[in-house]
Every structure is written in C-alpha cells, then in structure tokens.
C-alpha cells in the first residue's frame, strides 16, 4: 500500500499571518506584538493565534483600549530599535489614533532627514458584507494610501498574506497591513474559499509594491485588491462563458503602487475595469484610471469603468448593504456597457 503525501499546505489568511509573525519573532528578538485581544484570545480575527503561548506576555502584549497610546508607543519603540507589530482591531477605529499614525509614524523619518527608521507594522481589519454597519465595515484603502510616509499592503490570499507580512516586518519603514475580514477564513465572518491556498512552511517574502497577474486574458483588464480580486476572478469566469478573455490583476500593495504592471496589461487588452470595496470618489479606482490615462490615453478602446462602493456610509440592513457592495455581476455589467 502506498500513501500519497500531498505537499499542498492550505492555510487561511489568519493562520498565514500568525505563522509569518511567529517565524519572524523566532529569528528576530526585536519583533513584538501589541494590540487589543491579541494575546490569549489570539486576535479577534485569528491572526495572532498561538503567539501568546509561544512567546509569552512580554512579547505578545494585550493593551488597554488605548490606540493613541499603544500606536504612539509603537512609534517610540521602533525609533529605539524595536520592530513592533501592532493591531488596530478594525480600520474604522483609526479616528481615535490617527495622530500617532499619520503625524508621527508616517512623518518622523522625513522630519529626521531619513536618519530615523520607524519599522512599525500596523495590521488592521477591513471590509464588510456581514451587516456590521458603517463603523465596522469600511475599507478606507484610499485614506491610508493617500497619506505619504507609509507603505500600504492588502493581501487577497494566504500565500501573499504570509509573504507580505514577512516583508512588512523586515521593512525599515512603517507598513499598514490591511486584511479583509471576509477573506480571513474565520467562518463566522463569511469565508472566501479562494483565499485559502497553499502556503509554504518556510519563511518567504512577497515584495511590497509589486502587483500580480492572477489570471491572464486578452480583452479586458480587471484590477482589484483584497475582496475585489475575488469578485474579479468570478466575473472573469462568467465572461469566459461569453467568450470574453479577462485579465485579472491583484494590486497587493497600494503604496508603492505598481502602476507599470497595470499599464502593461491595459496596453495589451485596451480596456480597464477597476474594482474596489472602498468608497468610489477620490479613491483607488480613480487613481488607477488616472495612472493609465496619464501614461497613454490612446491605448484605451473605450472609457474605463469602476465598480466601487457608493459614496454613502455602509448600511446595516442586508438588502441595502448587498446592493451597495461590488460583486461579479456588476463587473460583468461594466464590461458589457463598454462594448455596447
């Protein structure tokens, strides 16, 4: 009898994040974790599970509900040679602590003329779709990506989640690490099966600032990030049934933004749809479209389209929220309106 051993090691984003942090903590004593409920609970979204048991309360520190203090403290600890990984439980909570983020963390390197390194990883949960309403469901991609001095990454699958986390921890600059709740594989927040993928056991990096083509195609480029990538992949399957070949790009990072990758794809396909669960106006969708248009407007066969969250607070009631969210059908419809 023979046993077939599979070398596929499927993991959720939550597990991949925790594994990445643990591996870095084992090799680098400067790495430590702070946040609310990230200790014994293992994080409300599971991404610090097991760390408290392995590294103890000195290096895995549950904080009081004091984001201003502990994110400010992360800045001070990073300037003093540590590499803190801090969690802002929901991105929506940035309101109380943005000073520490955009006035300290993002600017102290510049104000020191590049002498001070602030290697903080700020991980925070984004996204809706589970009726948690407007103070616990936002993405706020553009809010962070707009402000200079911070790198911003947001994985759509567990492989990227681990590699981006290791890159973020090793980066000498502040990195905002946005993870989408519905992609965490937590079950109770809805689980996107396609986010659960093979994750190598050894430590590896995914470069910050590099987009990935997750599906190749000829007729249209669909650009997304986190949940938007999964909507785009489903839309691409539906379009294939109709004989349309869609290319799907996962941005993976918002800062630095891999504009070249998108431009090269649009040069090939001639059409562009950008998907984003963040608010539409002044956001990622507009930035991607502007970048393509600035590069060479003549490569577009039709005006670009965006499928983003309308400019409204996120409603509670299921029919309203689901109506407002991006989805594959909206992407397919966007394509059809382009070629009409």
């Amino acid at each position: 009898m023979t046993t077939v051993t599979s070398n596929v090691r499927k993991q959720t984003i939550a597990r991949a994040m925790a594994e990445a942090i643990a591996q870095e903590m084992r090799t680098d004593p400067r790495v430590f974790v702070m946040g609310e409920d990230i200790g014994q609970l293992g994080g409300v979204f599971g991404n610090t599970r097991g760390l408290f048991e392995e590294f103890g309360p000195e290096r895995v520190r549950d904080t009081p509900i004091s984001e201003t203090a502990f994110i400010g403290a992360a800045v001070g600890a990073a300037a003093d040679g540590m590499r803190p990984v801090v969690e802002l439980m929901f991105v929506d909570f940035f309101g109380v602590c943005m000073d520490a983020i955009y006035n300290l963390m993002a600017k102290n390197t510049y104000f020191s003329g590049g002498k001070l390194s602030i290697p903080v990883v700020l991980m925070t949960a984004t996204g809706g779709g589970y009726s948690d309403a407007g103070q616990h469901s936002q993405c706020l991609h553009a809010t962070f990506a707009h402000l200079p001095g911070m790198k911003v990454v947001a994985p759509s699958n567990a492989y990227d989640a681990k590699g981006l986390m290791i890159s973020a921890i090793r980066d000498d600059n502040p990195v905002i690490y946005l993870f989408h709740k519905a992609l965490q594989g937590m079950g109770w927040l809805g689980t996107e099966p396609a986010s659960i993928v093979h994750v190598p056991e050894e430590a590896y990096t995914v470069p910050i600032g590099k987009a990935a083509t997750v599906r190749e195609g000829r007729d249209v480029t669909i650009v997304g990030i986190t949940s938007g990538v999964h909507h785009a992949l489903k839309a691409a399957e539906q379009l294939e049934q109709k004989g349309v070949s869609a290319e799907v790009i996962d941005l993976r990072s918002l800062v630095p933004l891999d504009r070249e990758h998108v431009i090269n794809s649009v040069r090939k396909t001639g059409r562009l749809i950008v998907v984003d669960e963040d608010y539409q106006s002044y956001g990622v969708t507009g930035e991607i479209i502007a970048s393509v248009v600035e590069a060479d407007i003549s490569m577009l066969k039709s005006p670009p389209k965006r499928v983003a969250y309308p400019d409204i607070p996120i409603p509670f009631s299921r029919p309203m929220e689901q109506w407002a969210l991006p989805n594959p059908a909206k992407i397919v419809a966007a394509y059809e309106s382009m070629v009409k």
Binding site: F70, A73, V75, A77, D80, A100, L104
Partner: peptide
C-alpha cells in the same frame, strides 16, 4: 506615546 514606547523598548 513615543516616550512610553521608548521606555517599553
């Protein structure tokens, strides 16, 4: 905050 963090460090 930064002073608290430096002390923690």
């Amino acid at each position: 905050g930064p002073a608290v963090g430096a002390a923690l460090s």
